[in-house]
């Protein structure tokens, strides 16, 4: 079946036998965007988090057929080194990543959170940011999330 969607601003059509294929594998292996990670395949770790129509989605548990006509954003579409998203800017300022594998998922979840809650409290962060980081960079992530909100709000005003 053919499925058409927009990913990081560019229109794509994929032809795939099984419409139930997780979007994760289409993003990684067909569209060759490797920033979205496979961690557990069970929507438990959050390493594959992306945005669909601005909503936070775990792509390992999202059938590609549901992407028809949708706008998808992955870490590659969030920002660039020249023009980083406030979340990426904050992540750089706080030097958050260690091994780095889970970080795109966390940054996507954070970007989605800031769209809904421009000034998240610690409780908002605890409730919404529930991905797993084995290096346990949570301490810096919390700082970076608050910092990202600050950068984003300043650039908006």
């Amino acid at each position: 079946m053919k499925i058409a969607f927009t990913i990081n601003g560019s229109s794509q059509t994929v032809d795939i036998e099984d419409g139930n294929t997780p979007l994760l594998w289409v993003i990684r292996d067909i569209l060759d965007l490797k920033g979205t990670k496979f961690g557990c395949g069970k929507a438990a770790c959050g390493a594959c988090t992306i945005m669909v129509e601005g909503e936070e989605v775990r792509s390992c548990s999202y059938a590609v057929k549901f992407a028809e006509g949708k706008k998808i954003t992955t870490i590659e579409g969030l920002g660039t080194p020249e023009n980083p998203h406030p979340v990426q800017q904050a992540w750089i300022e706080e030097v958050v990543p260690q091994c780095g594998y889970c970080q795109p998922g966390f940054m996507m979840a954070t970007a989605a959170l800031l769209e809904k809650v421009p000034n998240p409290t610690d409780d908002d962060i605890d409730q919404n940011i529930i991905n797993v980081c084995r290096c346990a960079t949570y301490y810096r992530m919390r700082k970076a999330i608050h910092r990202a909100a600050e950068i984003k709000n300043n650039s908006n005003s």
């Binding site: 490797k34 920033g35 080194p81 980083p84 990426q88 750089i92 990543p97 780095g100």
Partner: peptide
């Protein structure tokens, strides 16, 4: 000094074994 792999890890570069 900031991690030299910081950009690669913040912008989702394909740097890992599974990539």
């Amino acid at each position: 000094v900031k991690r030299i792999d910081l950009n690669a890890k913040v912008f989702g570069d394909p740097i890992f074994g599974l990539d």
